[in-house]
């Protein structure tokens, strides 16, 4: 088992190394830094940004600011998503009221909301929260809705037989059995929310990893754009790993 794990880690590292090597070779062949900078340059620049500020801050600050925005929006999305999902999954009436509206709003991409969000929430953090919220809440809602709908009827029957009230059935059966679905939703949502950070930070800002890209674009600085992309990729990867870790800890019972 252990050696298999080791093998898998080595395979992962080799893929990444291979990717960087191909990138390096192609960029050397292209030989146009503004079109495709070398992988070595981007990786080096990426590390440099942790020491040398880009704009007002170093990379650490940019990441923390973006994480703060995603964090706030993600918590809101989780609360709203779980409430909506549970409500729609559990009550036919709530489903009838909310589901069609939800399905109409869901396909509108977060980027399309930027103009309205500026109008409604101004240029500050509120509009950024709003965009990231829209980028993540539907995944949580949809998964929670699925989970609540798919509760094993046998389990509800068993609880009822043991004298459980509606309230007890809800809190002791419906909610806990939806948790794996909710977690699956949270996992997609955290990545989706983090991905929409660029869009959110296109709304006038002076900091954040999304800003790095937008500013790089405005200045025609390919290296800054790609450094920003690399930062988003790495942090997104770490966030996904973190949710998996939390999920494994909390959902030991669901581990096959």
């Amino acid at each position: 088992m252990k050696s298999e794990k080791k093998k898998n880690i080595i395979a992962t590292l080799l893929t990444i190394a291979g990717f960087l090597l191909v990138w390096q070779l192609v960029s050397m062949a292209v030989d146009n830094a503004a079109f495709l900078p070398k992988a070595s340059v981007i990786v080096l620049e990426f590390f440099k940004t942790f020491v040398n500020p880009v704009g007002k801050y170093t990379m650490t600050m940019h990441i923390l600011i973006s994480l703060y925005r995603v964090g706030v929006a993600f918590i809101l999305a989780t609360l709203v998503g779980i409430m909506m999902g549970v409500g729609m999954g559990y009550s036919k009436l709530v489903e009838a009221i909310l589901y069609p509206l939800f399905e109409i709003i869901r396909p509108i991409p977060p980027l399309a909301w930027i103009p309205m969000s500026i109008l409604w929430f101004g240029l500050g953090d509120a509009s950024k929260f709003f965009i990231i919220f829209l980028g993540s809440f539907s995944f949580i809602t949809l998964n929670t809705y699925d989970g609540t709908k798919n509760v094993d009827r046998e389990l509800i029957g068993a609880a009822r037989m043991l004298g459980a009230s509606e309230r007890q059935v809800f809190f002791k059966v419906v909610l806990p059995s939806s948790v794996p679905y909710i977690f699956a939703g949270l996992q997609i949502a955290v990545t989706a929310g983090w991905s929409s950070v660029v869009g959110a930070e296109m709304v006038r800002s002076d900091e954040g990893v999304g800003w790095l890209i937008v500013m790089g674009m405005n200045k025609g600085n390919t290296i800054q754009i790609m450094v920003g992309m690399l930062a988003i990729g790495i942090i997104g990867f770490l966030l996904a790993q973190l949710t998996t870790l939390v999920e494994r800890r909390l959902l030991a019972w669901n581990d096959q």
């Binding site: 094993d152 046998e154 389990l155 029957g157 068993a158 609880a159 037989m161 043991l162 004298g163 459980a164 007890q168 002791k172 059966v173 806990p176 059995s177 948790v179 959902l251 019972w253 669901n254």
Partner: peptide, 25 residues
């Protein structure tokens, strides 16, 4: 109490918590 043919243990509860389920209710 009702015992079904299909397994009706709560997968998120341990054996002990499952047995305790009805008493908590």
């Amino acid at each position: 109490s009702y015992i079904f043919q299909e397994n009706s243990t709560m997968p998120w509860l341990t054996v002990e918590e499952n047995v305790r389920f009805g008493l908590d209710i």
